[in-house]
């Protein structure tokens, strides 16, 4: 499954997915199209990994959407890994806070 726009791209392969670009959609609802397939992929696997290293910006609606995925993993009691980077401000500052939502969430910042 792949989505590609001028601003961002999303790809899913098995139990891994990768988001790239700038994600500043207008509302959490606008993120459904991106995150529903991720939730489906999570459901279909025993564990799931989301690579956001190349997501330069994500607004708070996007963080809401991403945390919904974390909550889905919690509900299904599955390990979820978010791969990020220290080099991008929002990742370094906000993403680790999501660990409080789910014990089996791992955040790896490169």
């Amino acid at each position: 499954m792949n989505i590609e726009t001028d601003d961002f791209a999303v790809s899913i392969e098995g139990d891994r997915s990768r988001l790239v670009g700038v994600l500043r959609l207008a509302t959490p609802a606008a993120y459904k199209k991106i995150f529903d397939p991720l939730t489906d992929a999570l459901t279909a696997n025993d564990a799931f990994t989301v690579d956001i290293v190349e997501v330069k910006f994500m607004n708070s609606s996007g963080i809401t959407a991403l945390s919904r995925l974390v909550l889905a993993a919690r509900q299904q009691d599955k390990p979820l890994t978010i791969l990020g980077t220290e080099a991008v401000a929002w990742q370094k500052k906000t993403i680790t806070s999501l660990k409080r939502l789910h014990k089996k969430l791992t955040v790896e910042l490169s």
């Binding site: 959490p28 607004n59 708070s60 609606s61 963080i63 809401t64 945390s67 919904r68 909550l71």
Partner: peptide
């Protein structure tokens, strides 16, 4: 922060101050 995220997950509405 956590409580707003949990709240957001249930409501279809805006992000209620997460920003």
């Amino acid at each position: 922060f956590v409580s707003q995220i949990e709240h957001n997950a249930e409501s279809a509405q805006g992000e209620s101050g997460l920003g």
